[in-house]
């Protein structure tokens, strides 16, 4: 078993792992009570905890969006505080586009739980419509890995439509990441594959459960990634998406 990276204590990455662990447990266990602020513990009042909220983006809301738990008002306020404390950068076009897609997913997830987040201070502007995703599978996988928090049922319809028919390319990316032992990337691509499998040719829901590789890949990731809460979070989200 490989443990390629362990976060240093008292860093944003540590806070991110703490929160990701709580999120994945909440996704696996329906009856577990869950609150974002409570899960962050001592991190919740510091900038490290708020930064962790920004790192996980819309995934912070998955226990509410995917399980039907009501979003506590204090957690909605905490997300807004995090967005304001860590506004989106606007200097580099590539980074702005990445943040724009992630923040659009956050606004969509907030809307799904009854919170109007549009216009919140600190959010990145919506990304401009592009001319299409990368044609080759390697570039496509590299593009989608950091966008995994946008892979949820309320993902941008245009993006999902562009992904239609790219299942084999996503699967190639998943296999490559597994072979490289890049577990986080593999888990994120598995999540996109689940989402792609739930869309028909015209973006309509279908009953496809993904390629035959998907289920054993998720089990593989759960075992090998048991020491990385971020991997477990991606797998937990993928499983929740499959169950929908």
């Amino acid at each position: 078993m490989t443990t390629p990276h362990q976060p240093s204590p008292n860093t944003v990455e540590t806070a991110t792992c703490v929160l990701a662990g709580a999120l994945s447990r909440a996704l696996r266990e329906d009856d577990r009570s869950f609150g974002v602020r409570h899960s962050l513990g001592d991190w919740g009042d510091g900038t490290g905890g708020l930064a962790a909220l920004r790192v996980l983006g819309a995934d912070v809301l998955t226990p509410f969006v995917l399980t039907g738990r009501p979003l506590p008002a204090e957690d909605a306020a905490l997300v807004r505080t995090a967005v304001r404390a860590h506004p989106a950068p606007r200097l580099q076009a590539r980074e702005t586009a990445l943040w724009g897609t992630r923040d659009a997913a956050l606004v969509d997830a907030l809307a799904a739980v009854g919170v109007d987040g549009a216009g919140w201070e600190g959010l990145a502007p919506a990304p401009p419509p592009n001319g299409g995703l990368a044609a080759d599978w390697l570039s496509l996988a590299a593009l989608l890995v950091p966008l995994a928090s946008a892979a949820h049922p309320f993902a941008d319809a245009a993006l999902r439509a562009q992904l239609a028919g790219r299942g084999p390319d996503l699967t190639r990316g998943l296999v490559r990441s597994l072979l490289r032992r890049d577990l986080l990337s593999a888990a994120r691509l598995a999540r996109w594959i689940v989402l792609d499998g739930q869309s028909g040719p015209a973006g309509q829901p279908s009953r496809l459960a993904g390629p035959p590789l998907l289920a054993p890949a998720l089990e593989h990731l759960e075992v090998l990634g048991s020491g990385d809460p971020r991997v477990l979070l991606e797998v937990a989200v993928a499983r929740r998406l499959m169950a929908r």
Binding site: T11, A51, E95, R180, D182
Partner: peptide, 25 residues
């Protein structure tokens, strides 16, 4: 907001595939 936190946060968000392979090759 500390500069260190902001820098680390942006790096975590932008992180893509790891540059290190632990595969058979």
């Amino acid at each position: 907001m500390s500069v260190e936190n902001s820098t680390e946060m942006r790096a975590l968000i932008a992180a893509g595939e790891t540059s290190t392979s632990f595969g058979p090759g």
